[in-house]
Amino acid sequence: MSTQHQPLRIENLSKIYTSSEGSQVTALQEVSLDIHAGEFVVIVGPSGCGKSTLLNILAGLEQSSSGQALAYGKPITQPDIDRGMVFQSYALFPWLSVRGNVEFGLEQRGLDKTQRRAVALEYLQLVGLSEFADKRIHELSGGMKQRVAIARAFAINPSIILMDEPFGALDALTRRFLQGELLRIWRSHQKTIVFITHSVPEAIVLGSRIIIMTARPAQIKSEVSVELPYPRDTASEDFRALEQQLYAQLDEEVARTFEMK
């Protein structure tokens, strides 16, 4: 089957870190996964299992030890503006204004100054921050910062967006709000999203498919296609049932994480 139209394909991917003292940590072991256009794939797994490692390899920020990751059929060897990324710690540039941050990647897309301004404004409007365009990053709250980071990632119009626990540092209310925003943007912009989280409810609220990873070395334990319609009702019986099922699987893996020590 042709992989040319498939946003991401992961083939037998392994990653082994060697520390400076020579000891080895296997972060990923023989992971294979196909991600299709328009999917919202959520990855959950015990802390330290290798989720960020996987995402960084997909971004092209790290290299695999064996196996490969493909984006639209081509091996991923370095970052590409067609794969955007949103980091847990926002990673905004503090020397730029809000607008400057959103415009950052647009220069690389070859837009001139007026075009950049217009696009930045459009995406700031999308996340409800157009009035804050000229503010400095340190003047924003955590939730606002993450909205800027989302606007910055979407503004370059990548077809794939990788998100590593983007809402992990936010309070519950802001988190709920941003989940809604993200779903709205995802559905209106036809992106493929790979999203890492520690939160089972967040995984079910967002994901069209949920991948559960094992304890380190990370492998895929199981996956669930979530058929519930958006926006998902967290109080519904189906939601609760799925939640129980996921918790049961994750509890097993978290227990294994502690046994390893």
């Binding site: 970052p79 503006i81 794969r83 710690s89 910055r152």
Partner: peptide, 18 residues
């Protein structure tokens, strides 16, 4: 913060110079 350098890379700074 290395994360800022990673952010620069995913936002299209491909050459060392940029």
């Amino acid at each position: 913060d290395p994360i800022l350098i990673n952010a620069g890379k995913v936002l299209g700074c491909r050459s060392h110079f940029s």
